[in-house]
Design a protein around this nucleic acid. Structure first.
Lengths: 397, 397
DNA sequence: GCACAATAATTACACAGTGTAAATATAATG
DNA sequence: CATTATATTTACACTGTGTAATTATTGTGC
């Protein structure tokens, strides 16, 4: 937490406390108070409230030192949230608790060109299966989140030619009152990596998070802003070479045409679908010849060129890259810095720009969406997403 | 105002009311209440307070309709603020009131390669002159603002190789306690154009503001964020042509190398300094041959290419361009759209992207900085920028 | 095993800032 | 000049916070 100022509504204060707990995964009160910039008195009040609503739990722990705190506060794991992810090769459903447990998963293969009607059919079927599962257990989902590559609240996405109004309408009907958040996959990814295990994340402060996979997506992780305000962007469709390789978007010379998993798979001679099946470590399995390695480095250089340009437009001092480049050796990755050096104003300087890599989490979908759902629940202060004034009117109109 | 939520500190509430007044240039109470999302009761209280402090004034006006409002609320014009602008060809000082009046101006020619020591000398001299002026009139500046091209709080600027710590230190000393805000020129420009005359501005909602002059700078105007949180960026140093024209930054193929005033001046055969002297309408004065026109269009196309890429990274649906391209004919400007069409994901579509032009305001410096100073005064709720807790300590340490 | 030390956690109370609603003011209209 | 319609102020209640006093908890040393 940070960037907030004292007077807040109860909902916001609850959200601040819950958010702190979600990020830390459990903490003692003095820590919560510091993190949320509240007094212990306020924390005490809020926690009493949250405990009575069974949103948080307190585990008795021996004090770690004389007079130390005695109860470890954690989020209840009995609040079920649902995460749904659509990627270019599958649709996955999951149910879990706020603590990060995953209790139910279903995954369906889909084609990258999935039509909206097909999707709706698939979704309805899976949802029915999921309902059966929750039904027998008497579980009521408190918050759902759906992540889509390239999703944007404000912009239509030419790469994902679905009717977004129809989509929200459909989902709203399908989920029957369960609060739903739709977000861009790269936001969910970034939030999951950044906050689900704070200690393991290589960056702090505002930075760029990039995911290089089927596409090349980026997001500005603004530490003081709420996650749903992060700005996602399509780095993959930055034109880095006028008149260059043809891209699926119709343009020529897009970064994606050079550095997407698909573009790479033609170089290494493995189909993209196979790469996805092999998961995280596919590059280790390959015996890359000198030639192939060289070509991959060229592509990494171009990625760097794009990243440098992105940094000219989003000036931050740290970049975290996830995706296939994270699987390459340091020597290979040096090509990225070289590319940045050619485009970033002032050149690449390890003193001023921290470049980190984290393993792409292929195969653990829909963990990110699940995390995002937990985040949304928590952001609303754990209060049922009461219909906004307008929405109330809307229901009758 | 917008994007805020109900409970606020007094300072914030004052800021909201004052900001509303600064933007509207004066309003009746019911309007203020709507704009700030406060009740009339709260507005009444705040205004009573501000009136007693002589920050706002109420002009008796006949009610415009039965039972209509009777007093027009405006910001006092007796609150002196100072604006200082550094551009590539001059340093200008100004003093004015919150209402937009300019009471004092001094402008000094400087070279684009001004060294920091020279600057300090010039600044001290001008400040002394200004002090004499305020001294004889018994005027005490309440807020000062200084705008610099390429300034960034977080990043050193390789184009502007000054020591920023030394700069703030120097300015702090020089201004002796007058609260000072330093900002990027493009932010001051954008804020000035956007809010000093709301009705005349061609865009609403979040958008990109670009200034094409000595450099090519951009800023994301986020309507819900405070102005000082706008994100400025150096569009000019996006590499749009690998191995292209050499740029002053040391790279090749930067947008600036093709579209800056300097790049253009070599095409039209007029020195940049002359262009600046001729002011806003320099292009009208030239008899552009077919050839020159064609070359300018090529440059506008490249500008469009860069803008499209910028939009891929900052997805907004409106762009406002100020600078020499604003002086070109519609037919010429079409080249910009053509460029955008080649890089923006999904192509250029007038339905989805609004492209507007506003006349560059050459020669009325330091109006923008002056406006920014007024904005800073207002943002602090018209309260003396009390030293923050840390700063207080700092003074004794 | 017990008093003590040291910090945690709760609670009573005061204060800031808001909205609601009642009271009062203002000016055009007939 | 009363009426009308809306603006403006004021009294009061309510929310949420911080301060400071109070109570709880547990390791340490005797």
């Amino acid at each position: 937490m940070s960037g907030r100022i004292a007077p807040r509504s109860r909902k916001e204060t609850r959200a601040a406390v819950l958010e702190s707990l979600l990020r830390s995964g459990g903490a003692f009160r003095p820590l919560i108070a510091r993190d949320t910039q509240l007094t212990e008195a306020s924390v005490s009040r809020i926690l009493a409230e949250l405990r009575s609503e069974e949103i948080v739990e307190e585990l008795r722990r021996p004090a770690p030192y004389v007079g130390g705190p005695t109860a470890l506060v954690t989020l209840s794991n009995d609040i079920p949230v649902a995460g749904i992810e659509l990627s270019n090769n599958r649709l996955s459903f999951g149910i879990g608790g706020l603590g990060g447990t995953v209790d139910y998963v279903e995954r369906l293969p889909v084609s990258p060109q999935l039509r909206q009607e097909e999707f709706e059919q698939l979704f309805s079927d899976s949802l029915a299966t999921m309902r059966r599962w929750t039904g027998t257990r008497g579980i009521a989902i408190r918050q759902a989140a759906f992540s889509i590559p390239g999703y944007s609240r404000t912009h239509a996405n030419p790469i994902f030619p679905w009717d977004m109004e129809r989509l929200s309408g459909f989902l709203g009907d399908a989920l029957e009152g369960v609060p739903l958040a739709i977000t861009n996959s790269v936001i969910a990814q970034a939030a999951f990596h950044r906050y689900s295990n704070v200690a393991a994340y290589p960056a702090e402060g505002d930075h760029l998070f990039l995911f290089v996979g089927h596409g090349v997506a980026g997001v500005v992780v603004n530490e003081t802003a709420p996650i749903d305000a992060f700005s996602p962007f399509e780095l993959g469709h930055m034109v880095i070479e006028r008149g260059g390789l043809a891209c699926r978007c119709g343009h020529k010379g897009c970064l994606e045409a050079y550095t997407s998993l698909r573009a790479i798979s033609t170089i290494v001679g493995v189909a993209e679908s196979e790469v996805l099946q092999q998961g995280d470590r596919f590059i280790d399995l390959l015996d890359l010849g000198r030639d192939i390695r060289e070509r991959l480095r060229e592509r990494l250089f171009l990625l760097g060129l794009g990243v440098g340009n992105a940094l000219n437009l989003h000036p931050v001092s740290s970049v975290v890259i996830s995706g296939w480049p994270s699987l390459m050796s340091d020597a290979d990755r040096a090509a990225i810095s070289a590319g940045i050096d050619e485009s970033l104003l002032g050149g690449f300087d390890a003193e001023r720009l921290k470049l980190s890599f984290i393993a792409p989490s292929i195969g653990n979908d829909p963990q990110a969406a699940l995390y995002y759902a937990a985040h949304c629940f928590v952001r609303a202060g754990g209060l049922e997403a009461k219909a906004e004034p307008q929405a109330v009117l809307g229901e009758n109109a």
